[in-house]
Each structure stands twice: as C-alpha cells, then as structure tokens.
C-alpha cells in the first residue's frame, strides 16, 4: 500500500531538515576567513593545472559502468522470480537457468575479452 511508504518520505524530510539545521548551526558558530590561497584545490601544495572535471579518465571506468548497468538490471528479474520460485517449480527453475546461462555467456565474453582486467 502506498501508505506504507509514508515513513520513507517523512524520513527524507526529517534528515534534510536535520542536515539543514546542523549546517546552519555550524555556520553561525564557526569562523569564516577565506582567501584565494586557502580556496585552492588540494594538490599537495603544487599549483593546480587545468580542469579536473573535464579530464579524460581510464576507459575501464566506463566499461565497469556499462557492465554494471547491464548486470544490475538482471537483479530485477531475479528477485520476483526468487519470491515465487516454489510455486513455479521446475519450469520456473529451468527458465531462469536458461536466463542465467545466457547471462554467463555474456559475462564470460566480457571476461575473456579482457573487460574485467584492470591492469594495462
């Protein structure tokens, strides 16, 4: 029932309010003395060069992200299946077996292809 989720929303509201309160409180009592040198990004004391957010990163991060997107969604199929597996019996099991085997084919492909190798 939707009403079950009321605490969820209340909780979000409460935490946001609480954080706001704490932050405001801190703002009121803490010192505030910024100057340009202090506000520079941390780089072990060296002058920073270029934009950090515009840099290009190791492609492996993208690969991992894409693999995650694909695999994570499969969880969605597994949960409902797991709930009713007892009722579906062998048929349901075989169905999911085929599904997981196909998933493993893809996984094995990614593995052998080297998508999971972090080094080099």
């Amino acid at each position: 029932m939707p009403i079950d989720y009321l605490p969820v929303f209340l909780m979000v509201a409460a935490i946001v309010a609480l954080s706001a309160f704490i932050l405001t409180l801190s703002r009121l009592i803490r010192p505030n003395n910024p100057y340009p040198e202090k506000n520079r990004p941390y780089e072990c004391g060296v002058d920073h060069v270029g934009e950090a957010s515009a840099g290009l990163f190791k492609v492996q991060y993208f690969v991992i992200a894409i693999l995650f997107v694909v695999f994570d969604v499969e969880t969605m199929f597994l949960f409902p299946w797991a709930v009713v597996l007892r009722d579906m019996g062998m048929f349901g099991y075989i169905e999911m077996f085929v599904f997981i085997v196909l998933l493993l084919v893809g996984f094995a492909y990614a593995w052998i292809k080297g998508a999971l190798e972090w080094e080099s």
């Binding site: 992200a65 894409i66 997107v69 694909v70 994570d72 969604v73 499969e74 969605m76 199929f77």
Partner: peptide, 12 residues
C-alpha cells in the same frame, strides 16, 4: 527497464 539499460549501455 531492462531493455533501456541495454540501450544506454550500447549508446555509452
């Protein structure tokens, strides 16, 4: 949702 995920994966 699943297909969308696949689509996004391909697109990315």
């Amino acid at each position: 949702i699943a297909i969308t995920a696949a689509e996004v994966a391909v697109a990315l």
